[in-house]
Amino acid sequence: MTTFDLNFAEDYFTLFGLPREQALDLASLEKCFRAVQAKVHPDKHAHAGDSDRRLAMQWATRVNEAFQTLKSPGKRARYLLHLLGHDPQIESNTAMPVEFLMKQMELREAVMEARSAADEEALEAVRSNLLNEIKVEYQRLAELIDVTRDFTAAANLVRQLMFQEKLLTEIDDALEAVTA
């Protein structure tokens, strides 16, 4: 296989010409994503030679991946901490504050109960509370990374947020099961 001289070594922030920060301006990100995708998308090369088309697909794939990573605050934080040399070690480090774990267990039970009772309203209520909580915590996370630069605390918060995001997926699954 030929190795292409793609600028694949560039990190996602550099790819879109954006500053390396957690409090990323989403509107700017979207504009840059579209500007780059408008250049590389396979549809823009549908009538070009094979090499161009293959490259276009690889580039468009990469640009989509970069956009998805930077768009989601959780993925963005993990990626940014990794770039900064403070990998949150999601797989190996599972230490969590006890009161956080207790609260998560309670919420999880509430979701399971609502699911078996097919209580759509209760599920929606838990979901919207959780969403609000997550939103506040992401604001705190941006401060920890961009302002106070306390990467250890940031990595801990990222791990907690992963827990909460997981719970959110479970609520969505429950809603799906209840409304199906």
Partner: peptide, 21 residues
């Protein structure tokens, strides 16, 4: 021809991305 232009195509694509921003 396709093989001969692989590298060229890659450079053009990089250039066009840089120009976009």
């Amino acid at each position: 021809l396709s093989a001969a232009t692989n590298e060229f195509a890659a450079r053009r694509m990089n250039q066009s991305v840089q120009r976009a921003l």
